[in-house]
Design a protein around this nucleic acid. Structure first.
Lengths: 103, 103
DNA sequence: TGATATACATCGTATCACGAAGTATTGTTG
DNA sequence: CAACAATACTTCGTGATACGATGTATATCA
């Protein structure tokens, strides 16, 4: 998928991936794989960015002697998803503009 | 509109704006304004990029004593629009993933 | 005369996705 | 047991790119 097109989707995809239950990096990548692929470096960068922006909170917890960082969405994060939904109307107008056939 | 979301749309919007008839910078911005806004510096950068990529050709012509650069879409440019259309299926899947409500 | 519209160009900056590489631990399998 | 894959997270450098600021011209109009 076109990398530029991804840019507008990745952040909100990550938020969607933790919307229903807290999750951690490795799992997020696997859960999103059927929809959109991203490298680990990309994901962890995004998670840090979203944390800084207050869209999610982090909690470190041990699992099988290994540390895992669980991410939890905040109200701001849910709001971000809502904003995305609202903006989608504009996006669809643009899509129409680009793909409309002309006689 | 979110700048990251725009990134995936601008190139193909510009191509769409010259799809039916050759156009020039200033007019392209005005034609696209109802759908998507962009600064002049952005537009001219994009036009140069698309030309380099063989998606359009340029012809300079005088109009009222002033030079205008007319842009004409190539087959590669039309192909780019088609690719965008094809990719849109994936985009809609992602949209569903992000916005689906969960019981 | 001064503002506004038309028309294009250049430069520096900030954002961001990615590959490469690294660190650790836990299976798994030959 | 040795080698490798899977799990889990981190850091660094790079390239792409949208934008604001700024500059250059000419035409029109009040």
């Amino acid at each position: 998928m076109d990398i530029q097109l991804k840019r507008g989707l990745l952040d909100v995809c990550v938020l969607a991936a933790i919307k229903n239950e807290d999750s951690y990096g490795y799992k997020i990548i696997k859960d999103m794989k059927p929809y959109i692929e991203m490298s680990e470096s990309t994901l962890y960068t995004i998670l840090k960015r979203l944390e800084l922006a207050g869209m999610l909170t982090v909690r470190t917890s041990e699992h099988d002697g290994r540390l895992r960082k669980y991410y939890h969405i905040t109200n701001a994060g849910l709001g971000r998803i809502q904003d995305f939904k609202n903006e989608w109307r504009e996006v669809m107008c643009i899509y129409q503009f680009v793909t409309k056939e002309d006689k």
